[in-house]
């Protein structure tokens, strides 16, 4: 009854095959109270979208953590892999001019 790692399953051949269950896996996103954006909370097994929603409610939102839930089939998510890290992210680190820190902040604009 553990949570399988969907990313590993995906990179090993497409389509999610949870090790401990024949049921498809769904990713759960919760919107916290106060209107913040939906955030990834975890994953659940379910045979349908409606059941995934209920399972997500019971597993992740039973203590008032959320005002809205999204569930998405895990295999509908295309994720980057650890191999992508170099080409995807490294080039960004030595280009400080891409950060908006060379501009003078106009008077009257609050700096956070």
């Amino acid at each position: 009854m553990n949570m399988p790692d969907s990313r590993d399953d995906k990179t090993n051949g497409g389509g999610v095959q949870p090790a401990d269950s024949q049921w498809p896996l769904w990713e759960v996103f919760l919107q916290p109270p106060h209107g913040a954006a939906h955030e990834h909370a975890g994953s659940v097994h379910a045979v349908s979208a409606e059941q995934a929603l209920e399972n997500a409610r019971d597993v992740y939102a039973r203590r008032g953590e959320a005002v809205s839930i999204w569930v998405v089939p895990s295999d509908a998510i295309t994720a980057s892999t650890p191999d992508d890290m170099g080409p995807f992210f490294d080039p960004g680190t030595d280009k400080p001019y891409r950060h908006p820190q060379f501009y003078k902040v106009p008077r009257g604009v609050r700096v956070f």
Partner: peptide, 11 residues
Amino acid sequence: PILEEDIALAN
């Protein structure tokens, strides 16, 4: 029968 339903029934 499955973790999620175990929790649901307990709820």
